[in-house]
Design a protein around this nucleic acid. Structure first.
Length: 565
RNA sequence: UGCCCGAUCGUCUAAGGGUAGGACGACAGAUUUUGGUUCUGUUUGUGGAGGUUCGAAUCCUUCUCGGGCAACCA
């Protein structure tokens, strides 16, 4: 029995995703001399999101596992949309995730080589300069069910093509006047074979090459060759590039260069968010969020500011797996990963998060007296020690922790009911004080002196324990409660405009009264607000005003129970 | 309606001719000075129809459904 389960465990550990299977087969067959070299190839035109994190973990993880290397390569072939700001943010995000690249390369490093490749294809009669307009070229491509028609410039001589291409490079023609096209097959069922554009004219300043070039290669004429130049063995990309693979291979074959191979996997989709760079940019530009690093964004910088840890994101990437079928991952899995880690690592502290907390006056507790309670920092980690928490006659509690007419299984405070104050005493609610509007403003309670936490001789057993903060010692804070950005699971598939699907309550800022141990908390610090969730100190926090972001709530089975009724 | 890809518990993901397994979720219980954590248990799946085979999630045929492809974007 024991042996069987051990065996199945080992089997489970050995279970490989389809890319690992390919890599292991390649290593076994001696392909590429058993070498594994991957690359992560972002275009520096936006911030990285959690979908990129999946790709980063895959590429770097693969190299790591099989003793290989991974290059970071910026796919910067379109100067109009790219910028060094993005280069820097991308590098910071990859590093934050915990990965180090072997080489930092840029497709623009290869512009000279790529240009030479283009000339060689012209010389082989496999490329021509086309004066057609963008519209004419689109029309020449035909449709998926009808073959294309040749451009009137398709039969230019090699010499003329060479001359024209050189003059394109020299800047003799305006943007859009001419393009260089591969001469392949206008009737191919693969649209990408219908004489794809290799180079276009753009008199634009490039973030790295400056004004050296006024012609820039298209993705298809840059990516595969860049892989090849770097001797990349396994070039991983998402499924939408699958139809590009034959062209990727065609260029490599005609050029006779190192045969890198492309493999595609399904991109990550997450519930209640969007993943397209276009839509994320729109959220930023139209002010629906505060920026690329808004904690509601699925960007790596957003997750970081939200309080996610690099290891939790890596764990998530590991758990979702890699396959070729479309997927929509429950954001609950991401939340599980961060809770799992923070449960073990963060200190528990008490914070009353409520715009209208209730004051509790303990009538039989001496006025002016303060007791220092020792409270354990983390029951999951005995080595985390204890801290001092002051207790007094007046304390704050949350409005949710009191009900005047409670249902049966309500274990918190109610008239005549007892509750344990975490780390302190058991109290009993004797009297409810209301204002003229009939709202509860204060509870007058008595405490059981023998019930002191750690030395309880009262013999009383209470079902509920609530958190609290001493009125005399409370530190004010702003608490930002983040929730899902969208109200539907899959905004991308919804017919309504994605802006109509935004969750109006994705950010609610609430007043917080936190225990004094938090007074000097610094940005980035993570804690658990007992019974509430995991929070981190935001960069906006100052010495005068603490600002906390809610990373994720605790699981709340009471909320679930209450919802049922 | 041309070409390409895909379809396994609610959601992901294994099994590749030989017991459909794991994770998250859900449900139930135990423990608990967090209605947290932890532990135990339960639940639910091979898209349809044919075929090959002693045996099919796996191979074949076909249907259905989903996704991608006709940017001087990547």
């Amino acid at each position: 029995m024991a042996e069987v389960s051990k065996e199945s465990n080992e089997k489970a550990e050995r279970s490989l995703n389809f890319i690992e299977q390919i890599v292991e087969e390649d290593i076994a067959s001696g392909k590429n001399g058993g070498r594994v070299h991957t690359r992560f190839p972002p275009e520096p035109n936006g911030y990285l999101h959690i979908g990129h994190a999946k790709s980063i973990c895959l590429n770097f993880g693969l190299a790591d596992k099989y003793g290989g290397q991974t290059n970071l390569r910026f796919d910067d072939t379109n100067p109009v949309t790219e910028d060094t700001e993005y280069v820097e943010s991308i590098k910071a995000d990859v590093r934050w995730l915990g990965f180090d690249w072997e080489n930092e390369f840029y497709a623009s490093d290869y512009f000279d080589q790529l240009y030479a490749f283009a000339e060689s294809l012209i010389q082989k009669g496999l490329a021509y300069v086309d004066d057609s307009t963008a519209e004419e070229i689109a029309a020449q491509k035909g449709t998926p069910t009808e073959p294309g028609t040749p451009s009137p410039y398709r039969s230019r001589s090699i010499d003329e093509n060479l001359d024209l291409f050189r003059r394109m490079r020299a800047g003799e023609f305006p943007d859009g006047a001419k393009v260089l096209r591969a001469k392949i097959d206008l009737a191919s069922p693969n649209m990408h074979f219908r004489d794809p554009i290799m180079y276009r004219i753009k008199h634009a300043h490039h973030h790295r090459t400056g004004d050296k070039w006024c012609i820039y290669p298209m993705y298809d004429f840059a990516h595969g060759q860049s892989d090849s130049i770097e001797n990349i063995t396994h070039s991983l990309c998402t499924l939408e590039f699958e139809v590009h693979r034959p062209l990727y291979q065609w260029y490599i074959e005609k050029l006779g260069i190192f045969p890198s191979h492309q493999y595609e996997f399904a991109r990550l989709n997450l519930t209640y968010t969007v993943m397209s760079k276009r839509k994320l940019l729109k959220l930023v530009n139209e002010g629906h969020v505060s920026g690329w690093d808004d904690p509601r964004m699925p960007t790596i910088s957003g997750l970081r500011r939200r309080g996610y840890t690099p290891s939790s994101v890596r764990e998530f990437a590991d758990r979702i797996g890699v396959a070729r079928r479309e997927n929509l991952i429950d954001v609950g899995l991401l939340e599980f990963c961060i809770r799992e880690e923070l449960n073990k690592s963060t200190s528990r502290v008490m914070a009353v998060v409520d715009d209208q907390p209730i004051k509790v006056v303990i009538t039989n507790y001496p006025e002016g007296q303060t007791e220092i309670m020792k409270v354990e920092n983390n029951p999951e980690d005995p080595s985390s020690g204890e801290r001092d928490v002051p207790f007094g006659r007046e304390i704050w509690i949350e409005r949710d922790d009191f009900m005047e007419n409670p249902p049966k299984k309500y274990f918190r405070l109610a008239p005549g009911q007892m509750v344990r104050l975490k780390g302190a005493y058991i109290i009993k609610c004797e009297e409810v004080v209301k204002n003229d509007a009939g709202e509860v403003v204060e509870l007058r309670c008595t405490y059981i002196p023998e019930s002191r936490s750690g030395s309880d001789t009262s013999g009383i057993n209470v079902k509920g324990t609530i958190h609290w903060v001493s009125v005399a010692h409370a530190v004010e804070a702003d608490v930002r409660l983040y929730d899902r950005l969208f109200i539907v699971e899959n905004p991308a598939a919804d017919e309504r405009d994605f802006q109509e699907l935004l969750n109006p309550n994705s950010l609610v800022t609430v007043k917080g009264l936190v225990e004094p141990s938090l007074k000097d908390a610094v940005a980035g610090e993570r804690v658990q607000f007992m019974r509430k969730g995991y929070f981190c100190v935001d960069a906006d926090s100052t010495a005068d005003k603490l600002v906390f972001n809610r990373t994720v709530t605790l699981k709340d089975s009471w909320a679930k129970e209450a919802k049922k009724n």
